[in-house]
């Protein structure tokens, strides 16, 4: 009898979308593989000395562009610095830029998009037109203007400030994309009967936006966000290459790829290793985003 009761109470314990999504994620190998990879990269960013004891700034010019060997697994770069150490140490700047810019962009863009869809009228016009103006600006041009204005080569801005500015620039120029996706997703359910039903029950704007519109917006925004991590890490590389983003002596994958790009025919490995790390990171985020999106849609379970 008590066993039966226990069974009933477990089957009826309160469940919601997030509990079910978590249960679903737990059983997916893709989720665990991508999570372990992401954790590994975050660990690399936080404690690079766990992975390598070689100083990434020690240069031995006489051994410039030496091939990979037992001593230097990934070889040596043009200035004779250890590529393995530089790749490990480069994770920090790249991952900070990629993650922070994605997080801020998604939050701001998602919130503004939902607000635009929910409020409609003037707020919608204002947010949408502002976004279009920013999107009309060529990305690289906009970034160059902002970064040279606030952190020009002569300004002597420290690495922390430059990273913040790079993140800020990427966010400013990219939130309209997320806002657009969020707005259209929220707008498509704004007039759905279940939102009307919630309003008829007396639900306020916050409940409608966060309980009913947000879950519908999450799926496309998460997928886009996971791709955005990749875009931002490579955008950081582009800006570094142009000399307006992070610059030596800061170590980042973007800086490494842009430095090595000129010697791709003489020393392929110089480009290959940082690029491989970048690709695996991006792949891990994309897989995680995909798994979360699937788990959040009850129909795909």
């Amino acid at each position: 009898m008590s066993e039966q009761l226990a069974q009933v109470s477990t089957s009826t314990r309160p469940r919601g979308l997030w509990d079910d999504a978590w249960d679903e994620l737990k059983g997916r190998p893709i989720f665990w593989i991508s999570s372990v990879l992401i954790l590994l990269f975050i660990l690399m960013a936080a404690f690079p000395t766990l992975f390598t004891r070689v100083d990434p700034h020690v240069a031995d010019l006489s051994r410039s562009m030496e091939e990979p060997s037992a001593e230097h697994w990934f070889g040596l770069d043009r200035q004779g610095r250890d590529v393995f150490a530089r790749t490990i140490h480069g994770a920090r700047a790249s991952i900070i830029v990629g993650l922070a810019a994605t997080l801020v962009t998604t939050l701001i863009g998602g919130l503004l998009g939902i607000l635009a869809a929910y409020l409609g009228g003037w707020a919608d016009t204002l947010i949408s037109r502002l976004g279009e103006i920013l999107l009309g600006l060529p990305f690289v041009l906009g970034a160059i203007i902002i970064l040279t204005t606030f952190a020009g080569a002569q300004s002597g801005a420290g690495p922390a400030l430059v990273i913040t500015l790079v993140v800020g620039t990427l966010t400013l120029l990219s939130w309209p994309l997320v806002a657009r996706i969020a707005r259209s997703a929220a707008y498509s359910v704004k007039h759905a009967d279940y939102v009307q039903a919630a309003r008829a029950l007396g639900a306020g704007p916050f409940r409608i936006m966060f309980r009913h519109l947000l879950p519908n917006v999450m799926a496309p925004v998460i997928v886009y966000g996971s791709l955005m991590v990749a875009t931002f890490i490579s955008a950081e590389a582009t800006l570094s290459f142009l000399g307006v983003g992070l610059r030596p002596p800061v170590v980042s994958w973007g800086v490494a790829i842009s430095e090595a790009g000129d010697y791709i025919r003489q020393a392929f490995f110089l480009t290959a290793f940082p690029t491989a790390f970048l690709c695996v990171t991006v792949l891990a985020f994309v897989m995680l985003g995909d798994a979360i999106r699937d788990a959040l849609d009850p129909k795909l379970r």
Binding site: P14, R15, G16, L17, D20, A192, D193, Y194, Q196, A197, A198, L201, G202, A203, G204, R207, R211, H212, P215, N216, L296, D297, P298, K299
Partner: peptide, 24 residues
Amino acid sequence: FQDPYTSLNPRMTVGDIICEPFEI
């Protein structure tokens, strides 16, 4: 409501849907 396919939020459990009036 008229259409039972659009009047229930597809991402909420039946319990959450029926409890929403009490939460509000």
